[in-house]
């Protein structure tokens, strides 16, 4: 009888956790909070450079996001708790046509270049074919900026970039960055995808603009829309001759309790500047 009672009790208690669960579910503890983690405090290095962490939602197809690295460091030196992410400046990519659509390319004019990409969801891009060109206004930039990001593409303000083999920005000064071979921005007309709405037809308009193809290697689309992050430390020679070390530490972020959907191309960078 005791065994019988035990089994009855056990049988009835077995699904108790479920019964106690609210009608709207349980097991929330199995998951993480979508809120962004706290930004690490900036570090002042022995060589007087500052290592800071910057985040920006570079996901929107029609925007460039600019940051001025010297200004970031100035702010942090003045106030280590300063919200330097507020220093990002956003400019839209001009999409409005300023002239008739043409079927020629090779002229390097500012505007939208329509390409047909040989790719599908879940597969790498196998090639692209020029379709047409629509002139637009030139991209407007802020007065002061060091780099600009658009999804995985990057521009420099007259700078140039070298990719090192380092994967720890704390060891940046161990690299012979002063004597490395730097690459400036290069013209591109099928990399800065500016509108996704015709992608279902494999047609993607891209902005004609110079981008830094070395720094752009920090994030590469592999299987669409899957991205592969390159954790190397990149060295940026700014227009004024100063050097910065940059490392992309995450490319997924965002999300709120109301909308926990994570965002690709939500970039988190480590920046060390100025290097000695």
């Amino acid at each position: 009888m005791r065994i019988f009672s035990f089994h009855i009790l056990f049988c009835l208690l077995l699904p108790l956790p479920m019964l106690l669960a609210s009608c709207e579910g349980a097991f929330g503890w199995m998951y993480d909070d979508p809120e962004a983690p706290a930004t690490p405090a900036p570090e002042v290095n022995a060589d007087r450079s500052v290592t800071a962490t910057l985040s920006v939602n570079a996901n929107p197809w029609g925007e460039w996001h600019y940051i001025d690295l010297p200004e970031v460091i100035r702010r942090l030196r003045a106030d280590a708790s300063a919200d330097v992410n507020a220093l990002w400046v956003t400019h839209d990519i001009p999409l409005e046509a300023t002239g008739p659509t043409e079927m020629v390319t090779g002229h390097r004019r500012t505007g939208q270049y329509l390409y047909r990409f040989d790719t599908n969801y879940g597969e790498p891009i196998k090639g692209s074919e020029f379709q047409s060109f629509t002139p637009t206004a030139a991209q407007t930039d802020p007065d002061e900026w060091s780099i600009a990001v658009h999804r995985s593409e990057v521009r420099t303000n007259g700078g140039s970039v070298w990719e090192s083999e380092l994967s720890d920005i704390a060891r940046a000064t161990e690299a012979d960055y002063r004597h490395a071979s730097y690459t400036p921005d290069e013209w591109s007309e099928n990399e800065v995808w500016s509108d996704s709405r015709t992608m279902i037809s494999q047609l993607v308009p891209s902005q004609g603009i110079a981008v830094n193809k070395v720094l752009g290697r920090w994030l590469r689309m592999t299987l669409m829309p899957d991205y592969e992050r390159n954790g190397h430390v990149f060295f940026l020679r700014l227009r004024d001759g100063s050097f910065a070390a940059l490392q992309l530490v995450n490319h997924i972020g965002g999300g709120t309790p109301q909308n926990p959907s994570p965002i690709r191309c939500y970039l988190t960078l480590k920046v060390r500047y100025p290097l000695p």
């Binding site: 097991f27 998951y31 909070d33 997924i252 994570p262």
Partner: peptide, 18 residues
């Protein structure tokens, strides 16, 4: 009782967000 959840695991941050 049946509860079916979907989440995405953000490998860099180690976050499993429902």
């Amino acid at each position: 009782f049946d509860q079916y959840d979907k989440s995405r695991y953000q490998s860099v941050r180690g976050l499993n967000v429902r």
